[in-house]
């Protein structure tokens, strides 16, 4: 464990807590894409399949349980909670996210480190996570106005993988043979997808204006 990875994990944890807090306290998921939340639930479900078989550390298992629990409860809130579900704008959140999953699955079947069931699903979760934010970013373009909590959620979610990139650089220089191109490229693509959001988020913060994405 290094400071970059810890910062990344804490930023990731903060992002899901901000979202859960928003949905649980103000009982609203306006501006949040259910599609992205469903994709993240699938990302964690396919990434942490080994939670029962391989034990790394208490921290590792605890964080996996938190990410699994939070992502599935956010999906549950948005789909089934009587009050929250009414605030979900389904007619705006129309990204065909199943069309994201198929290319990720095909790519995982083609490019992976080992051709085993777990490894292919794990690689699938990496590719899927890289594009999982797309429905959310499309929704933001459509709804244009972003409330603070949703903006903070996306900012933290984008930031965590940026810290992971620093972690990979650190591990590359400190651990011999630590080379994982698939993870690194997927992580880089994921972070770059947030680039324009970060740009407008920073502008709104600098000019102390409400965050508006261009149409």
């Amino acid at each position: 464990m290094n400071i970059f990875r810890l910062a990344g994990d804490m930023t990731h944890l903060a992002s899901v807590l901000v979202l859960l807090l928003k949905i649980h306290t103000i009982k609203s998921c306006a501006g949040v894409s259910l599609k992205t939340q469903e994709l993240y639930a699938i990302v964690f479900a396919t990434r942490y399949l080994d939670i029962l078989t391989s034990f790394v550390s208490i921290y590792n298992t605890l964080m996996k349980l938190i990410f699994l629990g939070s992502s599935f409860s956010i999906v549950w809130y948005m789909k089934y909670h009587k009050t929250v579900r009414r605030t979900y704008d389904r007619d705006q959140d129309t990204f065909r996210h199943w069309f994201l999953m198929l290319p990720c699955l095909l790519l995982a079947l083609l490019i992976h480190e080992k051709f085993t069931f777990f490894e292919v699903l794990w690689t699938f979760s990496l590719y899927l996570e890289a594009v999982a934010i797309l429905p959310q970013l499309v929704l933001l373009q459509r709804t244009r106005n972003i409330d603070n909590l949703t903006g903070q959620y996306i900012f933290l979610l984008g930031g965590y993988r940026g810290f992971y990139i620093l972690n990979w650089i650190y591990r590359y220089f400190t651990e011999p043979h630590y080379v994982h191109w698939i993870t690194w490229i997927a992580g880089l693509v994921q972070t770059l997808l947030y680039a324009d959001f970060f740009y407008y988020y920073f502008l709104s913060w600098k000019n102390n204006k409400k965050l508006q994405l261009p149409a």
Partner: peptide, 10 residues
């Protein structure tokens, strides 16, 4: 091993 060093990440 090569495999373990990546699976220790979330």
């Amino acid at each position: 091993s090569k495999d373990d060093d990546l699976k220790d990440e979330l």
